[in-house]
Design a protein around this nucleic acid. Structure first.
Lengths: 146, 146
DNA sequence: ATCTAAATGCAAATGGTTTGCATTTGCAAA
DNA sequence: TTTGCAAATGCAAACCATTTGCATTTAGAT
């Protein structure tokens, strides 16, 4: 399948050894197409009969992050770290505060704003995190009922 | 001093009892005018001969947050929570990835963008978190030297 | 002044994450 | 292919910010 190729290729390019753990974890993140909690990844591995120690999952994700294959993010009201496959370009998240559903937002209104800020602050701005939150369509309906 | 008044007044309005802990912690946050880590607050209290148990500091901050007197935020690469006095309006942060200095950005480019997104996604958007990061003027200079 | 719910101190628990160390494994060089 | 070794892994214990249970104290209403 296509994923397999993408996994191994990107691992090889990164200089990391291509191990069972790394292939499996990267594959899961590519497939998920969503930020995932470490525990979630760990359990999904187990379901697929792939037994990898939880601390190895953490270490693997750390390696992958160092090589920019995945990105670590933290959302509000959730003290766990989430990881997602590092798509080209960048994305933002719209999170439902009720059911925690995450919607990915592709376009970003901040490019020109960063340039303005750089002039004002003399910072060299290299990136940003933007999380929007609110109530998704479903949860709006449920709340009406209360 | 002006702070004292502001502290007590806002505590009274919130419906919380005005205790030594709450006055002291709110005062520190008002004075700091910057997000602070819990441990930082705790140590600053101790320096000022005000002995408050660490768990009380946590509980106090939680109460203050529930009454919207302070705001809890988490920055990247820092798994501690930060708290800041809740100014009117809202602010964003520009964080130096090297020295961790935080600059507060007053204006926000996201108002109209949220309306657009609401139409696209059917979410009812109630807020957002925006953190920008990069290298501050000082750290840019230091890096040149390397 | 009295009473009661709320606030606090203290110590122990929690839970996500990290680490030390012994063992295994990928992969480059022979 | 085989060998050698640094890198990766498993396991259990440590870490550390945060939370909690419970006994005691306190703010503020009556």
């Amino acid at each position: 399948m296509k994923n397999q190729m993408e996994c191994e290729e990107r691992l090889k390019k990164s200089g990391l050894k291509t191990t069972k753990s790394r292939k499996a974890i990267l594959d899961i993140l590519i497939r998920s197409n969503q930020p995932m909690a470490v525990e979630q990844i760990f359990l999904l591995l187990k379901e697929n009969q792939i037994n990898i120690n939880l601390s190895t999952v953490y270490r693997t994700l750390e390696s992958l992050e160092n090589k920019d294959l995945v990105t670590k993010i933290s959302l509000m009201d959730d003290d766990r770290m989430l990881f997602e496959y590092n798509q080209l370009g960048h994305r933002h998240y719209l999170v439902c505060v009720t059911c925690k559903k995450i919607i990915t937002v592709q376009n970003c209104p901040l490019g020109s704003y960063e340039r303005v800020l750089e002039n004002e602050t003399r910072f060299n701005i290299i990136g940003h995190k933007l999380y929007l939150y609110g109530y998704c369509e479903n949860c709006q309906r449920s709340n009406d009922g209360i």
